[in-house]
Amino acid sequence: MGSAIRYLRGDASSPQAKGPKVIAHVCNDLGGWGKGFVLALSKRWPEPEAAYRRWHRERAGNDFGLGAVQLVQVERDTWVANLVGQRGTRTGRSSGVPVRYPAIDTALDRLAAPMLELGASVHLPRIGCGLAGGRWELVEPLLHSRLVARGIAVTVYDHD
């Protein structure tokens, strides 16, 4: 296992790896799904969006909230990890960016155990840095401490 994050050009919704794979991305805490990377996921599989919306709708009886993780199997060896790491969505008169680094940190920490159990590699876009408005230099160390340091292979995809 490498101790560095691998960077590739391409689409994180189409992970380039053998063996079990988990595609991780950041969701908001409002139940909204419809902009950014999630559109690429929904084009390939209906399950992650349906599961996320159900998780949000039934949140009174589950763990939905900032820092929560939902793993959704989409193929025999592929899962999508919905990580709740964004407070709301960006609005015109935004009071700062929606990204929440502590929530992303918690979610990545919670993701580690199932990754190790599955023997899976993690594939993701630059989470929290698109519509959520985050800065990669603050997100990257979280990936290192929560996943890479535990021997989990992480690949980050930059879209052309």
Rank of each mutant, 00 (worst) to 15 (best):
Cys27Asn: 15
Ile23Ser: 00
Val122Asp: 01
Val26Cys: 12
Arg54Pro: 00
Lys18Gly: 08
Asp11Tyr: 09
Gln16Pro: 09
Val38Glu: 03
Ser145Asn: 11
Leu118Cys: 10
Val80Trp: 10
Ala132Asp: 06
Ile152Arg: 01
Leu108Asn: 08
Val156Ile: 10
Val156Lys: 04
Gly2Val: 11
Glu117Ser: 12
Arg90Leu: 10
Val22Asp: 01
Val97Met: 15
Asp109Trp: 13
Phe64Gln: 01
Tyr52Met: 08
Leu142Tyr: 01
Arg90Asp: 03
Val148Pro: 01
Pro125Ser: 06
Arg9Gly: 01
Asn62Ala: 09
Pro48Asn: 04
Leu118Phe: 09
Ser145Gln: 15
Gly130Met: 14
Arg76Tyr: 05
His144Lys: 09
Ala153Met: 04
Ala120Val: 07
Glu140Thr: 02
Met1Glu: 11
Lys21Trp: 02
Arg100Val: 14
Pro114Lys: 03
Gly31Ala: 03
Thr106Phe: 05
Gly67Leu: 09
Leu111Arg: 03
Val97Arg: 09
Asp160Lys: 06
Gly133Glu: 12
Arg90Cys: 08
Asp158Phe: 11
Gly134Asn: 03
Ala24Arg: 07
Arg54Gln: 14
Ala112Ser: 06
Gly31Ile: 03
Gly61Lys: 12
Pro20Val: 07
Glu137Met: 09
Gly36Tyr: 05
Asp11Arg: 15
Trp45Ile: 10
Glu47Ser: 11
Gln16Ile: 15
Arg54Val: 15
Leu8Gly: 05
Leu142Arg: 03
Lys43Pro: 00
Ala4Met: 09
Gly32Glu: 15
Asp63Pro: 02
Ile127Ser: 05
Gly61Arg: 14
Pro141Ala: 13
Val69Trp: 05
Ala4Ile: 07
Trp45Leu: 00
Leu30Lys: 12
Ser145Cys: 11
Val69Gln: 04
Ala153Cys: 08
Arg90His: 12
Arg135Cys: 00
Gly85Cys: 07
Tyr101Val: 08
Glu47Asn: 08
Glu140Asp: 05
Ala51Ile: 14
Leu142Gly: 00
Ala120Trp: 09
Pro46Cys: 14
Pro20Gly: 08
Leu83Ser: 02
Ala132Val: 03
Trp33Met: 10
Cys27Tyr: 07
Val69Phe: 04
His25Thr: 02
Leu116Asn: 01
Trp136His: 07
Asp11Gln: 11
His25Trp: 06
Arg87Gln: 04
Lys43Ser: 09
Val72Ala: 01
Asp158Gln: 15
Gly119Cys: 03
Gly85Phe: 08
Lys18Glu: 08
Val69His: 05
Asp160Phe: 07
